[in-house]
Amino acid sequence: MAQSKKRNSKHDYTLLAALLLLIIMGLVILYSTSAYNGEVKFHDSFYYLKKQAFAMLLGIAGMFVVANMDYHWWRHVAVLGYFTAILLSVAVLFVGDEYNGSKRWLSLGPFSFQPSEFAKVAVILFLAHVITKDIKNMGKMRTMIKVMAMILPIVGLVGASNLSTAIIILGIGVILVFVASPKYGQFVFMGLLGIGFMTIFLALESYRLERLAIWRNPEAYEKGYQTLQGLYAIGSGGLFGRGIGQSVQKLGFVPEAQNDMIFSIICEELGLFGAGFVLILFLILIWRFFVIATHSRDLFGALIATGAMAHMMIQVILNIAVVTNTIPNTGITLPFVSYGGTSLVFLLLEMGLVLSVSSLVK
């Protein structure tokens, strides 16, 4: 652009405040939820908290580094980042580590991480770059299909072992294309194509169809146990909850309660009001992403903020929908709250990108 870029000395403090409060609450909730499992499995009630705190410090440091960089620099490595995500996803299929029946991790010495978390950020930057480059043709159906087809390789590779993350990546792509396109009628056709693709994808593996059956009638299946226990936790919390640390369901009744089912323990310990407060913090984050996107000085920055907004919105909605048995179980985590160092680090790096966009004013 011909306009000069002026960097503001202040970042979005509303976003930072909500994020900080959410992270602190997440650590408190995580310790309360994971202390029992940590003591039973590792003889250390602080086991999960210590690992999450280390990831948090690493992620916050990375967030501020990225926040103080010019976000336009990432256009130069967007394509490289996307192909790196594809290579890492291929590597998972061949040399990945398996945990609880899912092969999603790569190990580098003493460290392990999930390439699918890197893929989310890589796809946001890649699509922001591609759409910005071809914005004049985004109203054409063939351009929209071409852009969506570009991310199908990573969707397929990630979806082979992690369907929930594949859905998130596909959702991010659809929302970015929708925002960039001046025509909306074409999305009806794209939606039908998406439904057809998901139907075929679900039918390829019998366990995916089994999840649909468990969702419809969890009492009839042994694997519906986690869902039922999560619903018991939500119901027993009432309006104000049992109190922090007083959950009964986390004592082995809800398996791996610190992961994707953590929202049920939030409801049990903090009640409807506490769970509502957590949701308000997520809504503030999503609102600030929207404000930053609409006030960005260029399309690339607006698409980065929109991609982060789509990521946060889809993941929070899917997690809560799974916990409340509104949709079949997909094993998706609650951002900034569920246990997972890789997820936390890349979420914070993504926040750094949004803060970098917010620091450039018109």
Results as ranks from 00 to 15, higher is better:
residue 2 A to P: 01
residue 6 K to C: 02
residue 8 N to V: 10
residue 16 L to H: 01
residue 17 A to P: 01
residue 22 L to Q: 08
residue 26 G to P: 11
residue 27 L to K: 04
residue 28 V to P: 03
residue 30 L to W: 11
residue 33 T to Q: 04
residue 37 N to D: 14
residue 39 E to C: 07
residue 46 F to R: 04
residue 47 Y to D: 00
residue 51 K to E: 06
residue 56 M to K: 00
residue 57 L to T: 09
residue 60 I to P: 00
residue 64 F to Y: 14
residue 68 N to F: 15
residue 73 W to N: 06
residue 74 W to C: 11
residue 78 A to V: 14
residue 78 A to C: 13
residue 80 L to M: 08
residue 80 L to Q: 02
residue 82 Y to G: 04
residue 87 L to R: 00
residue 89 S to C: 13
residue 90 V to A: 12
residue 99 Y to D: 05
residue 104 R to D: 08
residue 112 S to N: 12
residue 115 P to E: 07
residue 116 S to H: 06
residue 116 S to F: 11
residue 120 K to L: 12
residue 120 K to V: 14
residue 126 F to G: 03
residue 129 H to K: 13
residue 130 V to M: 13
residue 139 G to N: 11
residue 146 K to H: 12
residue 149 A to G: 10
residue 153 P to D: 08
residue 163 L to V: 14
residue 164 S to L: 10
residue 166 A to P: 11
residue 166 A to H: 05
residue 171 G to C: 13
residue 177 V to K: 06
residue 180 A to F: 01
residue 181 S to K: 07
residue 188 V to I: 15
residue 188 V to R: 01
residue 192 L to H: 04
residue 193 L to N: 04
residue 200 I to S: 03
residue 207 Y to L: 05
residue 209 L to C: 09
residue 210 E to L: 13
residue 214 I to T: 10
residue 215 W to A: 08
residue 216 R to P: 01
residue 217 N to C: 07
residue 227 T to A: 15
residue 229 Q to S: 07
residue 230 G to S: 15
residue 231 L to A: 11
residue 237 G to N: 08
residue 249 Q to T: 01
residue 250 K to S: 04
residue 254 V to L: 03
residue 255 P to R: 01
residue 256 E to N: 10
residue 261 M to P: 04
residue 265 I to F: 05
residue 268 E to R: 03
residue 269 E to L: 01
residue 273 F to D: 00
residue 279 L to F: 14
residue 280 I to C: 07
residue 281 L to T: 04
residue 291 V to D: 07
residue 296 S to N: 02
residue 298 D to N: 15
residue 303 L to K: 01
residue 304 I to C: 12
residue 311 H to I: 11
residue 312 M to I: 15
residue 315 Q to A: 12
residue 315 Q to N: 09
residue 324 T to Q: 05
residue 327 I to C: 12
residue 327 I to R: 03
residue 339 Y to D: 03
residue 342 T to V: 11
residue 343 S to L: 07
residue 354 V to L: 07
residue 357 V to Q: 05
residue 362 K to V: 14
